[in-house]
Design a protein around this nucleic acid. Structure first.
Length: 268
DNA sequence: AGCGGATGTACAG
DNA sequence: TGTACCTCCGCTT
């Protein structure tokens, strides 16, 4: 699940169910138990997302910093909460709702300064209003690194993961191995604008859909595809299958320990 | 029962 | 560049 859209959605969901009220804070698994005890009963004042980082704000400029990593999961529900299992790192509960966090890469109590340090090392986020794509461009335009690697670098752009990377490069016909400095400003601005729209849709729908209406199975006269990850996409995890647009074979390769997917015919 | 992956990051060298 | 870490699920035996 977790690319930036998931985290922004979580920030909104935590706010809606728990914001502005006192919350019970526990760590059934124990790894966050000391901090949970400090916060138990405090009011959740605000929530915030930057890229894949989630921040839950409590009085005194104290923040729970959550990063889901690859495996982290969050589950919300209506009261009464079920008995927690021993993998629940963090549970929030109030009379109406509960939410469990499992398997995060990070769940820690931070000061305002420590939180600021995280913001400072992240690039602009297409989902944060006012974030400046020019900051990303200044790095991209000077880099010999591939645009595929740059899009995954959270210091360059915050929130893009393996699915949005593959999909946005396909939608713009860009070869993932092209060097950042060989991108034009126009191409970058178009990528950024597209990411903003795609990820905003992702927040709304809680899934990633990137296929334009004219390329859906219905529009192309194909059988509806069997969907194995929750959204309709052009290339992500479609290795050796037929491209929705040109019919050619989708390629895959390992790039920095992640699987890259692209259509060599459509992306040059 | 046991394995291999997975929308991620950090650190060692 | 490799490896460790977090958890769950679906596949194979």
């Amino acid at each position: 699940m977790p690319e930036g859209h998931t985290i922004h959605r979580l920030a909104a969901d935590y706010r809606e169910r728990f914001g502005g009220r006192s919350v019970r804070v526990t760590s059934p698994q124990g790894k966050f138990a000391d901090s949970a005890a400090l916060l138990d009963g405090a009011v959740l004042e605000r929530t915030e997302a930057h890229g894949k980082h989630l921040f839950l704000g409590f009085p005194g400029d104290e923040w729970i910093h959550i990063h889901l990593g690859l495996f982290g999961k969050v589950a919300f529900g209506d009261a009464p909460a079920p008995p927690p299992t021993d993998t629940v790192r963090l549970r929030l509960a109030n009379p109406a709702s509960w939410v469990d966090l499992r398997g995060p890469t990070a769940c820690a109590l931070l000061t305002d300064g420590e939180k600021q340090a995280i913001h400072d090392r992240l690039g602009p986020d297409p989902l944060r209003p006012g974030d400046d794509p020019g900051r990303a461009w200044s790095r991209i335009s000077r880099s010999r690194t591939s645009v595929a690697a740059l899009l995954m670098d959270q210091k360059v752009v915050a929130g893009v993961g393996n699915v949005y990377r593959a999909e946005v490069l396909f939608r713009h016909g860009i070869d993932p191995y092209r060097a950042g400095r060989d991108l034009t400003r126009r191409e970058w601005d178009a990528l950024w604008a597209d990411l903003s729209v795609l990820m905003r849709d992702g927040v709304r729908d809680n899934r990633i859909d990137t296929v334009r209406p004219e390329h859906t199975p219905e529009a192309m006269g194909r059988p509806p595809r069997v969907d194995d990850h929750g959204g309709e996409v052009y290339v992500y995890r479609r290795a050796r299958q037929a491209c929705h647009v040109c019919g050619g074979e989708i390629s895959t390769a390992a790039l920095a320990a992640r699987n890259l997917f692209w259509c060599p015919d459509c992306q040059r």
